[in-house]
Nucleic acid binder design. Sequence first.
DNA 1: ACAAAGAGTGTAAGCGCTTACACGATTAGT
DNA 2: ACTAATCGTGTAAGCGCTTACACTCTTTGT
Lengths: 346, 346
Amino acid sequence: MPVTIYDIASKAGVSIATVSRVFNESPRVSPSTRSNVLEVAAQLGYQPHATARSLARRKSSIVSAVIPMLTNYFFVEILRGLQDTLAKTEYDLLVFSARTLDEVDGQMDRALQRGQAAGILVFSSPMTPARVERLSKAKEALVLVDCFHAGLDSVTTNNVEGGNLATKHLLEQGCQRIALLMANPESVPARDRREGYVRALEAAGRAVEENLIVVSADEEHHGYSEKSGYDAMRQLLSVAEPPDGVFATSDVQAIGALRAISEAGLPVPDTIRVVGYDDILISQHVGLTTIRQPMYEMGVVAAKRLLSQVSSPTQVRAQTVLSPSLVVRRTTGGQSELAHTEVAQS
Amino acid sequence: MPVTIYDIASKAGVSIATVSRVFNESPRVSPSTRSNVLEVAAQLGYQPHATARSLARRKSSIVSAVIPMLTNYFFVEILRGLQDTLAKTEYDLLVFSARTLDEVDGQMDRALQRGQAAGILVFSSPMTPARVERLSKAKEALVLVDCFHAGLDSVTTNNVEGGNLATKHLLEQGCQRIALLMANPESVPARDRREGYVRALEAAGRAVEENLIVVSADEEHHGYSEKSGYDAMRQLLSVAEPPDGVFATSDVQAIGALRAISEAGLPVPDTIRVVGYDDILISQHVGLTTIRQPMYEMGVVAAKRLLSQVSSPTQVRAQTVLSPSLVVRRTTGGQSELAHTEVAQS
DNA sequence: ACAAAGAGTGTAAGCGCTTACACGATTAGT
DNA sequence: ACTAATCGTGTAAGCGCTTACACTCTTTGT
């Protein structure tokens, strides 16, 4: 029933090799033959069979992305960059989403199915030795996105710089006691952001007070949750001398913290200033000062890197590090750039 | 280099057919042979070649989803349902995202690549005759998600019911002049929601006032945008007798409307009550009353339908219609179920 | 004890395409 | 005018797997 190159070949009076050449834009076909074949093909409504093609070419036209917690706005934005870039090529995108970091290994195995994809992108997953081993063994084109491992291609943002930016901003705002609300320490970005926080304090000649750092032990989303921020903030507010500045390793945590602060009746930004991380959609509406990552660009760069690896496997490895930027809003005394906030003030 | 069934066959002293049978759980293999083969395979680190398998089986283990405007929280949620359901099967998910509805056709063509996928899901795209034609010609398993066409499998929510719920709620709240902020009329869901609005008014014996209905002509996101809602609301507020209730066909529009209302200095919900549609994440924080669609379930149901079509092609067509539900929040006088809102009240 | 049935395995023919190699027909070079 | 290079095309061998069919042993029934 489905039409194959054989049907075209016989109807056009040529061999299947010639038909194949036409569809592969081979220069070794005479113009007349080409147009003849094309015409017959159009007439029959021919479409190349994707799978057969991949098999014969020994190369798939699919790229796989392993993404934990797809719900995150963060990933969706990166995905957009990816998609927009891939759409211009012949590659399609297979998405493997993991609900938790533990599911990543399973999804990675699926994504690494031999013959399935020409390359694979792994998002935001800590590079455990087992994973590195598994990934290198597969010998497939690979780009890490938002995570890092020496010797592997990666696209990340500079979390140390981000933590630094956030903390420096709070310092400049005159904060004296700056707390850190941290997600699970097994999260590398969280650790890096803390590193930036520590460096900023030290650069300013301030001591790092351990009791101002609250590390989440929440399982859910590895501590990147509203509840985690809320709980941490409650804890900070219960001590004798509460902080006057808070840097949370994510916006959701910051929003939780804001809730705790609001419940305690303390004014933001007057008594306490708050900075988050990510610039998720809500942040605009809440007026949360935050660190924004160039998500869309990450997707674009990652796709390009992967494609260039696919086309020239000998490619040197490269680590691309993009810089985050500070977005000042109401929670640190900035002007909300969006009138939205008023909405909720009614 | 890569290990194939031939390698296993020779090392295990059996034929490739037997190896294949082992990996296809055929019952016609003796237990001893099976375990022997399995052992050799493990030793060699064998992995079946996905593409070769698909070709030989004449059936892909991939499912494609064509999604316009993936950025929407709505789609991401459905995707989650899809993924979670597919993850339990052997199927993987190929995602084709279109930035606009016009790009849908192109992505649909890619998704319909012969041999690529075992089935395809098309999201929220108006079923033009050309599309219906294209989709039926492909003869692939197909499920429409959030869109509808007689004779095709589909999973939708009842938008008429949703519009009705929203409007009835406003009526019950005592609103006398209920405006409708509508997205582009070429969007079927928008039209259906209007239908529900109209019916609710008529059921209550109210007249439908055309000048209370503002239809967006915005290109961006087909009128499902913050700006569209803002502009429409401004227009409504500029007339002699402004509405005391507003139903917007999406939350983003409602949020734009709230901004306009807030700028005009009118209190919500006291003077104007607002209901949106979708229940996106921000809505909780803004305290927006809205109509919630069972997004995750849609994904689950769609995946199940598609899989059952794939396994039994003679399957009768079915249209699944899920019911939306009303979520009452601050903008119609309800209690915010989340303390979050206070955050922004500081 | 002998045919019939069944279990376990192998042989080989695809699946729909790509591509190395071979071959005849031009065209170019001298 | 004759060899060499070039062009356009066909032949056939895969790509790595599945599966119909055939075949050889065991079982089982009588």
